[in-house]
């Protein structure tokens, strides 16, 4: 009797565990298997293609564009949010008047949907009517800002909108970490003669290492997942110049009826995330276990 009652806790976990086991782990397995089949419009498990689907993904010009864009977007997005986030956090930490109001302003984009962000920036970057026109009317006649219509530049529009949306989050992470530094360490460093920039460079920034790690992991995996922003901002265009792995996957699976190819690209995305996440989760859980 007592033994049975002792199982109550585990039993209450069971529904969630089953849901997650099926819809996370089971589905990953299914998608992996699908990526080895000849599935086109519907999943089918009777005709096998093997790893050829992966070859098709990697040889596809659109995937090439997607990977190139992913590299540009990933690096600039992570770098941009880290730089702006850290800068704002350090500046905000200087006993600033109206800190609360500024923090609110920096962070509110995080509450918005990527769709709203995309729609808003699409409008702002519309060449004849948006910022371009504003600057021209304000007197900068030769100002041009039509990246969103140019194949080579459109991906940078995605970067701008992404950085705008997520920098505040990184700022909040860093600010929390800055406030969490033991004041005695800062006092000791001051006694030892550190001040201003040298204080930041030698004492404070190293203490932010965990926050850096977290920010990179979170932003990195957002960059890989990123789908809505591109859809709303550029629709993947002009042409397919702002293709990302996520839009590639969606296009092949749902529009082109190349389900197996779509599944292969999804597996590639998972692999990218795993490279980023698994070491992080491993270290988090090990530390967390006391």
């Amino acid at each position: 009797m007592r033994k049975l009652r002792g199982l109550a806790p585990q039993l209450t976990l069971l529904p969630s565990l089953i849901l997650v086991a099926v819809t996370v782990y089971g589905f990953i397995a299914v998608t992996m298997v699908l990526s080895l089949t000849k599935s086109r419009m519907l999943p089918r498990f009777d005709r096998w293609e093997g790893f050829d689907n992966y070859a098709r993904v990697w040889n596809h010009p659109r995937w090439e564009v997607a990977m190139e864009n992913f590299a540009i977007f990933g690096i600039l997005y992570i770098g941009g949010t880290l730089f702006i986030g850290l800068l704002l956090a350090i500046f905000l930490d200087q006993k600033i008047r109206a800190e609360g109001a500024l923090r609110t302003i920096y962070l509110y984009p995080m509450a918005l949907s990527f769709i709203v962000t995309g729609v808003a920036w699409q409008w702002i970057m519309t060449p004849d009517l948006g910022l371009e026109r504003a600057f021209q009317i304000w007197g900068w006649d030769s100002f041009e800002f039509d990246w969103i219509t140019q194949s080579e530049m459109a991906i940078y529009c995605v970067v701008i909108a992404g950085v705008w949306q997520a920098s505040g989050f990184v700022m909040a992470l860093f600010l929390a970490a800055l406030r969490g530094i033991n004041p005695e360490i800062l006092a000791a460093a001051k006694m030892d003669g550190a001040s201003g920039p040298s204080m930041y460079w030698h004492v404070i920034v190293p203490a932010l290492r965990p926050a850096f790690l977290t920010a990179i992991v979170v932003q990195g995996h957002l960059a890989i997942k990123s789908y809505d922003l591109v859809v709303a901002l550029t629709g993947g265009g002009p042409g397919f110049s702002t293709e990302l792995p996520s839009t590639f996957m969606y296009e092949f699976t749902f529009s082109r009826n190349e389900m197996a190819v779509g599944a292969s690209s999804a597996v590639m995305m998972l692999v990218l995330v795993m490279i980023l996440i698994v070491p992080y989760l491993y270290s988090e859980l090990r530390d967390g276990d006391r």
Binding site: T23, V24, P43, V273, L285
Partner: peptide
Amino acid sequence: NIVFGMLLFGCFIPFQIVLIPM
């Protein structure tokens, strides 16, 4: 802790990997 880790992993997967089976 293993159970927790397995759940946690669900926070990070790119949802593209589950679209078709879902």
